[in-house]
Amino acid sequence: MIEHLLVPILSGTIVAATPLIYAAIGELVAERSGVVNLGVEGIMLIGTVTAFAVAFAGYPAFVAGLAAAGAGALASLVFAVLALSLATNQYAAGLALTILGSGLSAFIGHNFGSASLKTIAKIHVPILSDLPVIGPVLFAHDAMTYLALAITAAVWWFLYRTKAGLVVRIVGEAPQSAHAIGYPVIFIRYLTTMFGGSMAGLGGAYLALAYTPLWVENMTAGRGWIALALVVFAAWRPGRVLLGAWLFGGVTVLQLFAQGIGIKVPSELLSSLPYIATIIVLVAISRNPQTLRLNAPVSLGQSFRPQG
C-alpha cells in the first residue's frame, strides 16, 4: 500500500517541479548579474504556446522545445532593450512583459483550444527503470525532466567554477568595477537575461509537451511567479532552487493525495500548504544574514549607466 502511493507521489513531485526548475534556474542567472525580470510568467506562456504550435504543426518535440527556448529568448530581448539599453525601471518593464506574454499567447493560442498533443516519450533505462520504487520514481521520466537537472548542475558549475561565471557574479555585485576593468556590463546582462528567457520558455514548453499536452489560456497558472519567489527564498543558490522546487511540487502533490484520502483538514488550508511550507523551509535554511549578504547580488534591479 505504501509503495502503491509512494511511487505516484514522488514521481508526481519530480514532474510538478520541472517547469519551476527551468524558470527559476534561468532567472537565477539573470539575477546573479543584477537583472530582475518579472516577465517570467509571460515568457513561460509564450514558450508554452510556441511549443504547442510547433508540435501541433507536426514537428518533433525537440524542435518544439528549441523553438520555445528561442521564443523565450526573443521575448526577454524586448525586456533587455527596455531595461538594459534604455535603462527603464526593471520591475515595470518585467511586469509589462508578463502582461504582453499573457495577451500574446492567448492571441496565438486562440485556435489551439480543442487540440490535444501526444506527450513526449518517457525514457526507459534498462535495469534501473525496473528497480522497485526508485525505478519508476527516478528513471522513468522524459528527456526534458533530466535536462532540467543537467542544466541546474551546469549553472552551478558555471557560476562557481568558471571564470565566466565569476564575471557574471561580479557584474551583479559591482557593475561599475566590472566596467572599470573592462567587462561589457550591458552585454553580459543581455546574455544572462536571454538565458533566463530561454529557460522560462523551456519551462513553459514542458507544460505543453509533457505535463498537460493541451493549450488553455494562462495555463502556467502562476508558476512564473513561484519561480521568481523560489530564487529569492533560495538565496540565489542553484542547489536550494532545486530543493525549493521539489519541496513545492512535493507538497502540492501530497496535499492532493491528502484531500483525496479524506483527511480532516479544510481543502483551503491544504491548498495553501505548498506556499507556506516552501517559504518556511527556504527562509529557515537561508536565514543566516551572512549567507544572504554574500549571495544577494548588490546591484539587483538597478539600471547600469557606465560612469567614467
Binding site: A16, G260, S271
Partner: peptide, 20 residues
Amino acid sequence: NIIFMNSWSDPGKEKEAALA
C-alpha cells in the same frame, strides 16, 4: 474521493489531482 483545487484554472494541478 473528492479534491478541491481552490483555483478556477490550473491545468497542471488538475492533472496531478486526477493522477492522485
